[in-house]
Every structure is written in structure tokens, then in C-alpha cells.
Design a protein around this nucleic acid. Structure first.
Length: 278
DNA sequence: GGCGGAAGGA
DNA sequence: TCCTTCCGCC
């Protein structure tokens, strides 16, 4: 199976599950692509990181962590992208700090120019419009047991929030897989591999991880899921739920995330939560 | 360096 | 809404 995967990074006439776990397309969708809104900073950073733009920015030693190696250069690149010739690191970092409250990013304390993505939140806020839980229950078997209390009318959340997401998260081996547990495919026809700059997640050429296994995957199973499933159990075992950010997301996931990342549902959960992830 | 308030622009 | 700009504080 081949795909001519194209993106802001380039063309990849290679199997899309090739060497690394994949980000969904939205994570790398170029700013100038039709229908996209103006590029967001986190998106721009992921683009640079995915490209392996190691001069200005690179992945750090921990999951989701990245290091700004040349702050002024990064600011210049960001300024060029946004048409802001007077951009500097001070301003860029202010924009980064606004992500703290949104829980998209947090600062790695004690390490200069080092920040950490909260990918699980990134998935949630950018994964709008998944179907209501009752549809999920009716249409497709979920990869985790559904409690009677969750099926019975009153407990079914209106837009995928609440206990169901909590439980999906708990059953997810990786936050990036959450959308697939929720059974709505991301727009993946043009998926592409990230060029080997994602920390900890090389798809191993381990015995038993042959492509033949893919045939056993559910129809419509997205490439990212496929790539993730290539990870050996011990790879997952190296990261605790805490490290995946599951603690945080489980705690905050009573928030329902709908269109445009709007939160609905339980008030007083999430916004009032703590700001740390570790 | 890093933080966050405030005002303002698109 | 998502920054950009400026600023005072630590």
C-alpha cells in the first residue's frame, strides 16, 4: 500500500505508516491550504518540528517537549509567516504563555527555552464534532466496555463528554489515539509521515509488527492508529498514564469539546483545575 | 528568562 | 478568538 502523501513538509512516496507515529493532518496542514484559518502558533511550531527544522527549534528529551534553540530565529520565522516584521522572542513567548491557560502547552521548569506540548489537549481542542455517544454506542463496538449506566438515557453525554470520554481515555494507549476510539476518522487521505523527529515513538520493525496485521484492523482505521498499533507493548509501557498526560485529561475531560474547541457540559471542571501536568 | 495584565488589531 | 505590543515585576 502506497500513498503519495503531500504536505507542507513535502512529498512522501512511501508507506504512510513508515517510520514514526503520525500526527493527524490538521497538525501539519499548511497555513495557506484552502479552507484553513490563519496559522496558529502551536501549528507553526509543529510544522517546524515535523520538518526537522533543528536550527531554530527541536524536540527535547521528553515526550512532547521541545527546545527553542535559536529564539530570535524562531521569532523571525514566525514573524515572516504572520507578516509581522517586528516579531521577537519576547512577543512570541507571550503568545506561548497564552497557551498555558488553554493547556495546550506548558513550560518545562528549570530548562531555558524549553516547553512541552500537551498533545492530549491538542487533540481534544482540535477534534470537534465527533458524534454523540449514543450514536457511537449504536453504530460501532467500542474498544472499551460500556457500562449500562452510560448507555441509559440520562447518563449519555450530549456531545461526547463525561464518563465515556474518561473511559475512552483510560483505554487509550496513547492520547493521539483518542479520536480513533471515538470512532470518527480524521481527514487522513493525505496523511504523511513525520520525518523522525517525534520523541520516543519510532515505529519499531519488531517481529510480529508486519503489515499483514493491518488487515485485521477495523475498516476505516486511520493511518495514525495503524502506526500507533505498530508500537510494541514495551514502548507504551515506558510511558505511564501520568506521562501521557492522562491524569490531567481524565480530570478535565468532563469538559465536552465540541465545534471549534468550545467547551460545554460540567461547569467548574477543568477551568478551575490545576495548571500543572506532571 | 519568564510571567501575566492590559489594550488593541484583524 | 488569537495573537501582538507594551510593560512592570520577579
Amino acid at each position: 500500500m502506497q500513498c503519495n502523501c503531500s504536505s507542507s513538509i513535502g512529498s512522501f512516496p512511501s508507506p504512510y505508516w513508515s517510520r514514526t507515529v503520525l500526527f493527524p493532518d490538521w497538525a501539519y496542514k499548511p497555513a495557506w491550504s484552502p479552507g484553513s484559518r490563519q496559522v496558529q502558533l502551536w501549528h507553526f511550531l509543529l510544522e517546524l518540528l515535523g520538518r526537522g527544522e533543528s536550527g531554530a527549534i527541536g524536540w527535547g528529551g521528553e515526550w512532547g517537549e521541545f527546545v527553542i534553540r535559536d529564539p530570535e530565529r524562531l521569532a523571525r520565522l514566525w514573524g515572516e509567516r504572520k507578516g509581522k516584521p517586528h516579531m521577537n522572542y519576547d512577543k512570541l513567548s507571550r503568545a506561548l504563555r497564552y497557551y498555558y491557560n488553554k493547556r495546550i502547552l506548558h513550560k518545562t521548569k528549570g530548562k531555558r527555552f524549553t516547553y512541552k506540548f500537551n498533545f492530549s489537549k491538542l487533540i481534544l481542542v482540535n477534534y470537534p464534532g465527533h458524534p454523540p455517544c449514543h450514536q457511537l454506542i449504536q453504530s460501532t463496538p467500542l474498544p472499551f466496555p460500556v457500562l449500562p449506566s452510560e448507555v441509559g438515557g440520562a447518563r449519555v453525554p450530549q456531545c461526547g463528554g463525561g464518563a465515556m470520554i474518561d473511559r475512552a481515555l483510560q483505554s487509550a494507549t496513547h492520547p493521539l489515539m483518542l479520536p480513533y476510539l471515538l470512532q470518527k476518522p480524521l481527514p487522513f487521505p493525505h496523511s504523511h509521515p513525520v520525518q523522525g523527529h517525534f520523541p520516543f515513538l519510532p515505529v519499531p520493525s519488531a517481529p510480529g509488527s508486519s503489515y499483514s496485521n493491518l488487515r485485521e484492523l477495523p475498516a476505516g482505521c486511520a493511518p495514525a492508529t495503524i502506526a500507533a498499533l505498530h508500537l510494541t507493548p514495551n514502548v507504551w509501557a515506558t510511558k505511564s498514564g501520568k506521562e501521557w498526560g492522562l491524569n490531567n485529561i481524565t480530570r478535565t475531560s468532563s469538559l465536552c469539546v465540541g465545534q471549534g474547541g468550545k467547551e460545554c457540559g460540567d461547569k467548574g471542571v477543568g477551568r478551575g483545575g490545576t495548571d500543572h501536568f506532571e
